[in-house]
Nucleic acid binder design. Structure first.
Lengths: 112, 112
DNA sequence: TCCAATAGTATCCTTTTAGATACTATATAT
DNA sequence: ATATATAGTATCTAAAAGGATACTATTGGA
């Protein structure tokens, strides 16, 4: 059996999740529900406005988060996780879980 | 609460899985158990030898696959999934599952 | 003696992703 | 009239990931 990456479903799922700040943004919104642009910017230490906007747009594009603009001055924009985005939670949780074990394992190996 | 990507466990897990061909290689070895370099090369349509070697080395580095060299000519090298690598299977399976639903969803949305 | 088969390396180039930094629009409060 | 707060854009640069292509070592068999 032959295959190309484009036809690999796991590859697809990963490509939606990948981006230096995407998992963190999702996790934040999953636990907070809603956050303003500026709040996210403060929480994500080191992110540039360009990257923040970019990652948010890509997540929105996939329907994982939603963007609500309040027509005020100064501007107010709120981002929240969608119901659909929440369907990713079990996957993120199990990755978190797995990663903790992986770290332990690596530590043990370097001690031998 | 503030956070950097390096301290995000999900980010860590992803960085192990990411690479254009890594998920496919893992899935192959999970289902086949063992494959030779050349078999993988044939299966992974379009991969260059450099990339194949690179992805295999990185997966080996993490302990997810193992490499066995037979001292023969012409050379024979077999790659297999490790027991440890198999612990990723539930995660890959759920990503596969999720991705199929995601595709359906996208399709439905473009039809509206 | 020369070729075939296998599992790679080596080198150079292109594309993608991310970082740094400066700038913008606008109603409100002073 | 000016400064302020917020949510971004714009532009340029650096680093990482991936692709194309040619090359190598080895030895048993014709």
């Amino acid at each position: 059996m032959k295959i190309k990456p484009e036809f690999c479903k796991v590859h697809d799922a990963l490509s939606i999740l990948v981006g230096k700040w995407k998992p963190i943004i999702l996790l934040y919104l999953m636990s907070e529900g809603t956050m303003r642009y500026g709040e996210l910017k403060k929480a994500l230490v080191g992110i540039t406005p360009k990257m923040l906007t970019n990652q948010l747009r890509e997540l929105e594009e996939e329907g994982l988060i939603s963007r609500e603009v309040y027509r005020e001055v100064p501007p107010k924009v709120e981002y929240s996780i969608t119901e659909y985005g929440m369907t990713l939670k079990p996957i993120l949780d199990s990755m978190h879980e797995w990663s903790m074990e992986h770290k332990k394992r690596k530590l043990k190996n370097t001690m031998d």
